[in-house]
Design a protein around this nucleic acid. Structure first.
Lengths: 218, 218
DNA sequence: AAATACAATCATTCATGTCTGTTTTAATTT
DNA sequence: AAATTAAAACAGACATGAATGATTGTATTT
């Protein structure tokens, strides 16, 4: 997409009167917006950020580009919306996992491992990499990354209350998990690591976490 | 760059007669090629893959685009050359580190940690991410990734011969190191992780490696 | 009917590869 | 050693394709 490759000369074009008023055919609008966002995610996964263009997204969504511009005043608005959708989806998935009854370490690591292999994470990483050199993108992304880390820690702390006794070890375990699982996903995707190595790594990570816990749990 | 966005209709344009003959003003040519490759790396770091274009690279190198096209018949050739340069640089750096006398674990992990924070690795990751959705790129990159893993393991095995007694643990230690260090570098770059967390992670990794070693070494 | 969803087209910008022309450098000949 | 010549290094301009935001026009809703 390469945000705002062309500078908007026009007078900011009154954003299409976001029809956020609860009860109308605005439901249709929200649905179409959602379709476009989903299409964007698919494009990011299939073609990468560099080749995710507005015509391609429109085609992937089965819409005309004109229709698309009706719902998002420009390409930047679309990927901004995509970012926050991915963020919320990440939080939701994490929340669902936390609500399940079984909370042993193996379960959680494998659940998060499954998460980081799904399209959502791949698309998110495409955007995160792009944001490194795109201020407009990083202005949106960085705060969300921080919020995710906080929620991640909150949830984990709620699940393992006995860990509050040694917060440094807890912090380390969280960072280890995130780094290894996310890093491993990226490494496999980019060919830096063979997928055969994954099980042993997961097993080792689980052991590590248990050793960082304050003595109980299998 | 987005390789070959336009298809070459012309008849393959006899590649500029690579003047690889050892002893001429061909040294100048090699030097200019090198300047262009360095400029490409800088652009990848500064602007990201999506915004690394031939005009920008030429400008960064202080050359005209025409001159650039004289040395690389198209943009794809340039980034291909950049990839193998980065690969060889990675191997060289690794080799240098192995030639130093002191070979304790702490030294090696911190050396590699320093490596993955340098421009070379960042540029390489930009290309690796792009290669995920670009067959032309991955055709070059994937074999090099494999070669790097092999050399990485060979070198490490030469440095710690006593480790041959337990190859699975050795393999795990190598994968752990690569995943954590590279993953952590990316995480910090993209804002997924705060850099404050790095020292504790490094320390933990070093301990892990030592525990995987067959009993000796401090 | 008024507004909103959608479609189609426009002008602009930019990157790409190709082509033509100029300068510099090295090799050959005298 | 000086002059000549050929090739390589470099620069600038061109045509093409594609993506962008803007604009205008049509069909649905409600």
């Amino acid at each position: 997409m390469a945000l705002s490759r062309t500078k908007s000369t026009r007078t900011a074009k009154a954003a299409p009167s976001r029809n956020t008023g609860g009860t109308l055919q605005a439901a249709k609008a929200a649905q179409t917006r959602s379709r476009l966002i989903e299409a964007t995610i698919r494009c990011l996964v299939k073609y990468g950020y560099a080749n995710t263009t507005t015509p391609r997204v429109a085609q992937e969504a089965g819409l005309s580009r004109g229709a698309m511009m009706h719902h998002f005043e420009n390409g930047a608005a679309l990927i901004k919306a995509t970012i926050i959708e991915l963020h919320e989806r990440r939080l939701r998935a994490f929340r669902r996992a936390a609500e399940k009854p079984e909370h042993d370490v193996d379960n959680l690591t494998e659940t998060y491992w499954a998460q980081v292999q799904k399209p959502g994470f791949i698309a998110f990483h495409e955007l995160a990499v792009a944001a490194r050199t795109d201020k407009e993108l990083s202005d949106i992304l960085v705060p969300l990354q921080e919020e995710f880390r906080d929620r991640f820690n909150d949830q984990a702390q709620a699940l393992f209350p006995e860990w509050r006794s040694s917060p440094e070890k807890f912090d380390l375990a969280m960072n280890l998990s995130q780094t290894i699982l996310e890093g491993m996903s990226i490494a496999v995707q980019t060919g830096a690591m063979s997928s055969e190595k994954v099980p042993a790594m997961l097993h080792h990570l689980e052991n590590q976490i248990r050793e960082l816990m304050p003595r109980e749990q299998s």
